[in-house]
Amino acid sequence: MCLAIPAKVVSMDGSIAKVDMMGNERVVSIDLVPEVKIGEYVLVHAGFAIGIIDDESAKETEELLLEVANAYEQE
C-alpha cells in the first residue's frame, strides 16, 4: 500500500501537475512538494507527489531501475 512510483513533471498548474509516469501521462497533486520544478522527478503515491528525487546520479539510478522493471514486466 506504500507503493510509490517515480514520474517526471511535465507541466504545473497551481497545486496540480502533469507527470510522465513510465510513458503514461497522469495528473497528480503537488500539495506536499510545492517547490518542485518542471523536469524534476517526483515519487507518486496515491495521486500525490510525496517527495522529489533531486540528485543527478540518483535520477540515473531510478531510470536504470525503471528500465529493468519495464523489461521485467514485459517478460
Partner: peptide, 9 residues
Amino acid sequence: IGFETTVPT
C-alpha cells in the same frame, strides 16, 4: 487506512 506514506494525502 494506511501508514505515514498515505496519511498526508
